[in-house]
Design a protein around this nucleic acid. Structure first.
Length: 687
DNA sequence: ATTAGGG
DNA sequence: CCCTAAT
């Protein structure tokens, strides 16, 4: 590494977070309604569109939560504070300390949330599909959208405010979540009974692959990230120029939210396939990096989720699989049988189980015990799910419809760069921005069948081979950058694709990578990152030590972008985050970095030579390598120096500046002040 | 992008 | 340090 690189590295220390996926909460009702309407009208039969409908959720207000385990060093958060976020993006801390009974091994506990969506589509020809109704079921954390001719039987959702609740903090989550659900008005559109013969797509949490997490250190929005990261593993090693966090797989969730918790700390495991010990880990990474979006709803109808297939640990596009008819029916039976508290729990268990199954291998049922266990913890608070049971006691003819369950969507990877000194809150906002931007219009939903993308959108499901009586393991959905919005950058692997991100020193930029991630993806993201990254780390040292000697040009690389190993997917996109609306959202006040005597010395020297009013030159001459010292900073410093020099030593604060320097400051100030006024004097004389 | 000043 | 108006 050249000295130059090293300097840059030292000068600019930033954190980069890469997101490969996200869990997405349900969208605001309004959005859903709108979506629903249009969908019913036009896309009832298009799985892609339906799926996309679910994604519409993402376009709404999103909130990013940072999760940390109970073992956080920060006492304030140790008590178990939860952050509740509503749709408006407001958040507040709720002290849950009362609930935080010591949880064994909480430190390693991870949580996962599942938002399921159920889509029922007729698998018959488009013309025959019944657009009359797309229903959205939402219950405590559960939303399902159904398409098909259905009779409207129930509607308790209207009028309910849908709130997204986000619970942060890892301990006693289940309880908290429950609270959230309880407290948060939830919403739910209309619920209709589905007819028969439908295709259902349920979304679940997807794989929890490759994820770097802040681990247990992120607890408060006010805490500098650096603090957290410093305690972290090598992954956040500053030496790599950038600390990078990659949330490679936040599952996108579309409707139902199931919160569960695992007790093993595998958050990091996600990053390394090898450490993937847990058979079923819907959202491993979520463990630490829990981002919870909980949709609370009053109409508590839980729709059991079956999982047929899960994402591979590596995190491929999540796949939706056809439900086995029998199981589905059975399930229905169960539901109808019991619609009460314990019942609900049951469902949740099922969910978990299914998830685990998927991961295991799509073999339904083997991991039941395991997952169930976690579920218990996770899905505590039965009351909340009181009405989870789905009303439909009868499930007519399932023949002509295909039931699919979308465990989760994988969101294109995002890379976010943010100063270490930024607060967690700003990180959240940055992430939200990134996610929102991506989801706002740059996504496409792709349908995979047998691992092959289904290109012809005009074919019916039947024609395509998606029918209820067929093996459902082969159907999958994936999110991918919309070429229309973000034309695929150059050749894969080319770093050029990173250029798209160079907005002028944006606080964050992310790079949307291919959605399709292969199993091996985890490592790719996890490890090469360091190798590829050539971030700059800021350091006061260098600049202060020999500011004058650091004359270099090449300020160009102030934009640090970390190339992300390209996936083997053709689609790639880079999106710049536009955070103009609310600068405050991300613009964190820079950390205070008092000038050292050495810096003052360099400044004085430069000003003596160049004069005041030429701060850019001063900067270039004496602080070119000190990236954190802008010409404005230098100008300000000079201003304060002049002031300091004028006041009595007793009134001065901070590191004392040698009187000798102060004298020079006054001298230079006086001198250049005169120089500046000369022209004016001349003018005055002339006129 | 810089400069100059007020906050 | 931040924020802005004015260049």
């Amino acid at each position: 590494m050249s000295q130059h690189d090293f300097c840059d590295m030292v000068l600019s220390r930033r954190l980069e977070y890469g997101f490969n996926g996200y869990q997405v909460p349900s969208m605001p009702r309004a959005a859903r309604s709108a979506r629903r309407r249009s969908s019913a009208r036009n896309n009832a039969e298009d799985p892609k569109l339906c799926a996309f409908d679910l994604l519409a959720t993402l376009a709404g207000n999103l909130l990013v939560g940072n999760s940390s385990s109970a073992s956080t060093s920060n006492s304030s958060t140790q008590n178990g504070n939860c952050v509740i976020n509503d749709l408006n993006g407001e958040e507040g801390y709720v002290d849950q300390s009362d609930h935080s009974e010591p949880q064994p091994d909480d430190r390693s506990s991870t949580e996962k949330e599942i938002i399921n969506s159920l889509i029922i589509l007729p698998d018959i020809d488009e013309g025959k599909s019944n657009p009359s109704g797309i229903d959205i079921h939402a219950s405590a954390g559960d939303v399902s959208i159904k398409l098909g001719d259905t009779a409207d039987t129930k509607d308790q959702s209207e009028g309910l405010g849908a709130d997204m609740l986000s619970c942060e903090q890892g301990n006693t989550d289940s309880e908290r979540v429950g609270d959230f659900v309880r407290n948060g008005p939830s919403v739910l559109p209309k619920v209709k009974d589905e007819t028969h013969g439908q295709m259902k797509v349920e979304s679940h949490i997807s794989d929890g692959a490759d994820v770097y997490s802040l681990k247990d250190h992120v607890t408060s929005d006010k805490k500098p990230l650096a603090r957290h990261s410093s305690n972290n593993s090598s992954r956040l090693d500053p030496c790599e120029n950038k600390d990078q966090l990659s949330l490679s797989s936040f599952p996108v969730e579309n409707g139902v939210v199931v919160v569960s918790r695992d007790n093993d700390d595998n958050s990091s495991g996600c990053t390394h396939p090898s450490s993937y010990t847990k058979p079923f880990r819907p959202v491993p990474y979520i463990g630490d990096r829990r981002i919870r979006k909980v949709l609370a709803s009053q109409s508590c109808k839980a729709i059991p989720r079956y999982k047929s297939k899960f994402l591979r640990p590596g995190g491929g596009p999540y796949q939706a699989h056809f439900l086995d008819s029998d199981r589905w029916l059975n399930y229905q039976g169960i539901q109808s049988q019991r619609n009460f508290p314990f019942k609900k729990r049951k469902f949740y268990d099922m969910d978990c189980r299914s998830i685990s199954d998927k991961e295991t291998n799509g073999k339904g049922g083997d991991n039941i015990s395991t997952s169930r266990k976690s579920l218990k913890e996770d899905c505590s608070e039965p009351e909340r799910f009181t009405s989870l049971a789905v009303p439909r006691s009868t499930f007519p003819d399932v023949d002509s419809h295909v039931k699919l369950r979308i465990e989760s969507f994988r969101v294109p990877e995002m890379l976010i760069e943010i100063p270490e000194t930024a607060t967690v809150g700003s990180l959240k906002r940055a992430v939200v921005d990134a996610v929102t931007t991506i989801l706002g219009g740059g996504l496409h939903v792709g349908v995979l069948l047998q691992g092959q993308k289904v290109g012809d959108d005009s074919k019916t499901l039947q024609q395509t081979g998606i029918s209820h009586d067929r093996a459902l393991d082969a159907l999958g959905f994936m999110l991918e950058p919309d070429p229309a919005h973000y034309p695929p950058p150059i050749s894969p692997g080319s770093s050029s694709l990173l250029r798209h991100c160079d907005a002028p020193q944006p606080l964050t930029r992310y790079h949307a990578a291919p959605t399709k991630v292969q199993p091996g993806n985890c490592d790719k993201l996890a490890e090469p990152r360091g190798a590829h990254s050539r971030k700059l780390v800021e350091s006061d040292r260098d600049s202060t030590t020999s500011p004058v000697n650091m004359l270099r040009k090449g300020r160009a690389e102030s934009k640090a972008l970390v190339p992300i190993p390209s996936m083997n997917t053709g689609a790639k996109a880079a999106v710049a985050i536009h955070r103009k609306s609310k600068r405050s959202e991300i613009a964190q006040r820079r950390i205070r970095r008092p000038f050292t005597v050495a810096e003052v010395e360099a400044l004085v020297q430069a000003v003596e030579k160049l004069g005041t009013g030429r701060w850019r030159d001063v900067k270039l001459h004496a602080f070119d390598s000190a990236r954190h010292r802008t010409y404005v900073d230098l100008k300000d410093k000079w201003k304060t120096l002049v002031h300091t020099a004028k006041i009595s030593p007793q009134q001065r604060r901070g590191e004392p500046v040698p009187q000798e320097l102060l004298d020079r400051v006054l001298t230079a100030h006086a001198y250049w002040g005169q120089q500046q006024s000369r022209p004016q004097q001349l003018k005055q004389l002339l006129y």
